[in-house]
Amino acid sequence: MRALAPLVLAAAVLAPGLTRAELENEVKAAYLYRFLSYLEWPPPDLDGDGSPFVIGVVGADDVYEALREIVQGRSAQGRAIEVRRLKEGDDTLGVHMVFVGRAAAGSLGKMASRKAIVVGEVEGALERGAAINLVRTADHVRFEVAPQVAERKGVRISSRMLSVAARVETGAP
């Protein structure tokens, strides 16, 4: 399938003015948006009235900015999406998913004890209570998941998402 402009291979390398870090952050933000379609929250965390999803971002301003751009005009499972910039120690009441950036990795453990699904971006984040971790391989951003951590918060991760995950933490000791 040559779904690729001949001309375009040149473009394949990278989009303009895009530094590595920028693209990495944007891909991470896109993941956060995508995950919403593959997670099932129980009522009343997500009630039937079409109230919006709330994603909190702490310690990652670039991801926050990119995510705000991505969710504009978009919805997930028929719900609007709200993005909140949080500070370490902020209340996460009503937040469905919180991204804990590298700069705030110290608060992973504290966040993990709360209701929201925690997404990390540092090595070992799953072991520190995150349900999802975005990991940078040599060239790509992949994700690993700990379905049991999510389940303890009543959230089911779809099998589809598990099949794409780079690693599924089984929780066995």
Binding site: L14, R20, L23, E24, E26, V27, A29, A30, Y31, Y33, R34, Y38, A66, I70, V71, R74, R136, D139, H140, V141, R142, F143, R160, M161, V164, A166
Partner: peptide, 14 residues
Amino acid sequence: LGDLSLEQLSNVTV
């Protein structure tokens, strides 16, 4: 990027 599927995102070369 928000249009990409999970697989596609995992294949974006960063």
